[in-house]
Amino acid sequence: MRDARVLTIGRNPRLAREGGLQFLERLTNTMGCHMDIAALIISVLAVIAAGLSAYYAFSQKGAAWEQAGDARISATAAKESARYAEEQVQLSQQALEAEERARYEARQPYVIVDIRPSDSIRKIYNLVIENIGPSVARDVQFAWDPPIRRMDADDAPYPIADARPFTHGIPMLPPGGKIVMFFGVATTLKNFDVDMFTVTVSATGPDDIVEKHTYEIDLRLRRGVMYHDEHNFHDAVTQLEILADQARKLREDHRPKDY
């Protein structure tokens, strides 16, 4: 049947031309259909590729944000570590300075000045200069404000300000060394016209010049204060002297007399 059709077409040019046109049309339609399918596939692939690119870009953006956050956290941690290290250095420096200061003060003389009741007679006030430090104090000097003077009205014949420690200083005062000067009687403190003496003490120690110390001696703290008698070694010696005098008198009274 096909062979007969081919023979018929071959003998009739018109049929041959129409058959060729139909073949070309079908071929064109077939190719167009295939091209549409290819274009559709290409479009789908393009959309998928664009989606993958977008997803990859979004993933990269998220990773970048995470890296930026981690970098900020790392920077903050590094800053805190640096601040903590700086604080530790400062604390160590302060501890070292305090230790050095303690060692320095532990080997320095410490001369104090005070006006206090006598240890033996509570109604008498003494001016006391004492070195309570562990080393020898040399070239001890005093600066008084107002000028030092006794409470008694008869200070004029023997002014305490003319005492050698205040006019020439103290060449050497050993550890525990003490100088005691009579300052006045308690009954005169009430009418004494000076409320406070300020004295600045300077000296030289084993490390050259010692830091100056200023003392405020407030006499108002002593006014109106009553003291009871305290018996001490001085009182015991006094009583023994009295007993010795009485025994000597008894011995003399009972000594046999020559008639």
Rank of each mutant, 00 (worst) to 15 (best):
K249D: 12
R101T: 12
A46E: 14
P157R: 09
G177W: 05
E241D: 01
Y104A: 02
V199L: 02
I160D: 03
T30N: 08
L15T: 02
S92C: 01
R83C: 03
R14Q: 12
D208A: 09
E105I: 12
G62K: 13
F197S: 04
I217V: 07
R72W: 08
I242F: 07
Q246Y: 02
Y104T: 03
M1V: 07
I42H: 11
R220I: 07
S92P: 00
P146C: 07
F197Y: 15
D145T: 14
R72P: 01
V47H: 10
I170N: 02
I160C: 01
A163Y: 06
E252C: 01
V210F: 03
D229H: 10
I132V: 11
E211Y: 03
R138A: 14
G32M: 10
A106K: 05
A143F: 09
S81C: 01
D139P: 02
Y110H: 10
P134F: 12
A50T: 07
G169M: 08
A50H: 03
A68H: 09
T8A: 14
M1G: 11
R2K: 05
Y158V: 02
T214L: 06
E86F: 02
L189Y: 13
A98V: 01
W65M: 13
A236M: 14
G62W: 04
W144R: 05
A95Y: 06
H168A: 06
L45Q: 13
E230A: 03
A46M: 13
L45D: 15
I121P: 00
S135K: 08
Q94D: 12
A63D: 10
R2P: 00
R251N: 12
A57P: 00
R251G: 05
R223M: 08
V113R: 02
I217A: 04
V194M: 13
Q67L: 03
H34L: 13
